[in-house]
């Protein structure tokens, strides 16, 4: 099933990634979350398999590539949350230059 493709500013994403060291948001830990150390929802969103494709770049000290997840969800909403920290988009990818958004979802 195709999804509506909304444009989101790439610049905005970079600002978030770069600014975060200096302007930490208040802790989001709430009493509702069953695991206080995840911003995701491990009890609703059951991850099944991870496929990592990563290139190791010792000069830049980065890994770049993709992570694909297959999953089951109890409550099937229009949104899923993942934990990230200091991850950024992949600007150098030729495909990326043609497509400012770098997140894709697919239904098999």
């Amino acid at each position: 099933m195709p999804f509506r493709h909304l444009l989101l500013s790439l610049a905005c994403f970079i600002v978030f990634s770069c600014k975060n060291e200096t302007t930490p948001a208040p802790s989001k830990a709430t009493s509702q979350r069953p695991d206080p150390h995840s911003l995701a929802d491990p009890f609703n969103d059951k991850m099944l398999e991870l496929q990592l494709k990563l290139k190791v770049d010792f000069d830049k000290k980065i890994l770049s590539g993709s992570a694909s997840w297959s999953f089951d969800r109890k409550e099937k909403t229009n949104e899923i949350i993942f934990d990230t920290d200091n991850l950024t988009n992949r600007k150098s990818d030729p495909w990326e230059r043609r497509n400012p958004n770098h997140l894709y979802a697919r239904t098999p």
């Binding site: 099933m1 999804f3 909304l6 980065i62 890994l63 770049s64 590539g65 993709s66 992570a67 694909s68 997840w69 297959s70 999953f71 089951d72 969800r73 099937k76 909403t77 229009n78 949104e79 899923i80 949350i81 993942f82 991850l87 950024t88 988009n89 992949r90 600007k91 990818d93 990326e96 770098h102 997140l103 894709y104 979802a105 697919r106 239904t107 098999p108």
Partner: peptide, 15 residues
């Protein structure tokens, strides 16, 4: 990430 209720696979490109 926005997805549809029956999405069960997605790919995130990142560094």
């Amino acid at each position: 990430i926005k997805l549809s209720p029956n999405t069960n696979y997605l790919t995130i490109h990142y560094s």
